[in-house]
Structure formats: structure tokens, C-alpha cells
């Protein structure tokens, strides 16, 4: 009698547990994985500096440092024998197109540079406003720079900046 009672209660408890997960639409192993994932996510603070770079023998120190998913301070520097173009400022997302970023110079807020992160996680400089000419020579501009490759951190290759940007834009 007691054995039957124990068996029945155990059956009910296990049935309730299974039903709870079925109602949620999530299998047990999925929940466990989710828990593990959230624990992994909580391991480190989610901000990250990103560096985009492109160089060849003649054009050295072609570096952009920024954080494209939590936007803020940014440095743009280009140094070649024929062109020096450098600016420091902040970058924010363009709300109409989350793949586009707008840089505003710290020294002159009228100097704005529009950039785009491509699907290959490269950075293209699309256009600049006229006041930006203060920060480079007459014969070159930020828009003449070739596409930059994402070089740091290398571990976020699978998670592109575009995905991260989309996350930020969503309300």
C-alpha cells in the first residue's frame, strides 16, 4: 500500500515537472543550456574595445579604435607619406540604419564622419562634412581611406558588430 502510494506520488511529481516544461515550450536540456549560457554571459562585463585596421608597406599606422556595440569614444588615425588624417571624438548609431555609425569630432562638433560596418565586419568610411578638412591635408580625406578590417578582439568574429548594433537599436 505504502509502496503504491510512493510510486504514485513520484509519478505525479515527475509528470508535473515534465508538464511545466512542456507548457513553457522548452525541453529540460534546453533550459539547462540556457541557464549555462546566461551564467557564461554573466562571467564578464559586456563592453569591448574594437580595433579596425588596414596597412601596407607605405601606408602605416592605419588604425581606428572604437567600441561599435556600446558606442562612445573613438580615435581615427591615418598616417602615410602622402596623407595624415587624424581625429578624436565619439561615435553613435544612425537610428534609420543600424549598420551606419556617425562620428563627431571632439574638437569641432560640425565635423561628422559617416561609417558603415559591412556584413564581413569591415568598416567603410562613407562621407565626411566640410569642417573635417581641418583634421587632414588638402589632398586627402577620411573618405579616401580603404576599407578597414576588424582585427581586435579576434574572438568576436562569429558575433559581428552589425548583430550587436541591431541589439542596441531595439527598444
Amino acid at each position: 500500500m505504502i509502496k503504491n502510494f510512493v510510486k504514485t506520488s513520484l509519478f505525479f511529481i515527475s509528470a508535473m515537472l515534465i508538464l511545466t516544461h512542456i507548457v513553457d515550450g522548452k525541453p529540460i536540456h534546453h533550459l539547462r543550456n540556457q541557464k549555462e549560457n546566461s551564467q557564461k554571459k554573466q562571467t564578464f562585463f559586456p563592453y569591448q574595445l574594437e580595433i579596425f585596421e588596414n596597412h601596407n608597406d607605405l601606408n602605416k599606422n592605419y588604425i581606428i579604435t572604437m567600441d561599435t556595440h556600446h558606442l562612445g569614444t573613438t580615435l581615427l588615425t591615418f598616417n602615410s607619406p602622402t596623407c595624415q588624417a587624424n581625429a578624436q571624438g565619439t561615435t553613435k548609431l544612425i537610428s534609420e540604419n543600424p549598420t551606419k555609425l556617425e562620428f563627431t569630432s571632439k574638437e569641432d562638433p560640425y565635423c561628422k564622419i559617416t561609417m558603415q560596418v559591412t556584413r564581413q565586419n569591415q568598416l567603410k568610411i562613407l562621407k565626411e562634412t566640410i569642417p573635417c578638412s581641418t583634421w587632414h591635408g588638402d589632398f586627402c580625406s577620411f573618405t579616401t581611406l580603404s576599407t578597414l578590417n576588424h582585427v581586435y578582439p579576434s574572438s568576436t568574429k562569429e558575433k559581428t558588430s552589425i548583430d550587436l548594433n541591431k541589439k542596441d537599436v531595439s527598444p
Binding site: Y47, D67, G72, T73, L75, N86
Partner: peptide, 15 residues
């Protein structure tokens, strides 16, 4: 992060 040579920029971030 900082550039020791031209343009000698530096950047600080704490979050």
C-alpha cells in the same frame, strides 16, 4: 590605449 608616436592620441574607458 595610446599611440606613442604621431598623432600621440590616448583613450581611457572605465565602465
Amino acid at each position: 590605449t595610446y599611440m606613442p608616436y604621431y598623432p600621440a592620441y590616448g583613450m581611457i574607458h572605465y565602465n
